[in-house]
Computed example of a mutant assay.
Amino acid sequence: MDGEKIVLQKYKAAQECVVTGEVAPENFSLLDGKLVLSLEGAERLMKELEDSLSVKYPFLNEK
Rank of each mutant, 00 (worst) to 15 (best):
D32V: 09
L49M: 10
L30E: 01
K34V: 12
L31H: 12
A24N: 15
L30A: 13
E16M: 15
T20G: 04
G41D: 02
T20S: 10
D51T: 15
L35C: 07
L37A: 05
L49H: 00
K34H: 14
V19A: 03
L30I: 07
E40Y: 01
G33N: 14
E48I: 07
L37I: 00
T20I: 07
L31Y: 09
E48R: 01
L49Y: 00
E16W: 07
V18N: 02
L31K: 11
V18M: 03
S29W: 03
E26N: 12
A24Q: 09
F28C: 03
T20N: 10
V36I: 15
L49W: 11
E22P: 05
V19Q: 04
F28P: 05
E16S: 15
L45P: 02
D51Y: 01
E48L: 07
V23W: 06
L30D: 00
K47E: 14
E26Q: 15
L30R: 00
L37W: 03
L35F: 01
E40M: 06
R44G: 06
P25W: 04
K34S: 14
V36G: 06
E50R: 14
L45M: 11
L31F: 12
K47G: 02
G21S: 06
M46E: 03
E50K: 15
L49V: 13
A42S: 13
C17N: 04
E16C: 13
E26G: 03
D51V: 10
G41W: 01
P25G: 15
P25K: 09
L37H: 01
A24T: 13
L31Q: 12
P25M: 08
C17Q: 06
L30S: 03
K47Q: 11
K47L: 09
K34G: 14
G33W: 11
E26P: 00
K47T: 13
G41V: 01
E40P: 00
A42V: 00
G41Y: 01
E16F: 12
M46W: 04
P25H: 07
L30T: 00
E48A: 07
N27L: 08
A24M: 10
G21Y: 08
E48D: 09
M46I: 10
T20L: 07
E26H: 15
F28S: 11
S38Q: 03
F28R: 06
E22G: 09
E50I: 11
G33A: 13
D51P: 01
E50S: 11
E43R: 12
C17S: 03
V36T: 15
N27D: 12
G33S: 13
V18P: 00
T20K: 09
K34A: 15
S38M: 07
G33L: 11
K47D: 11
L37Q: 05
L45I: 09
V23T: 11
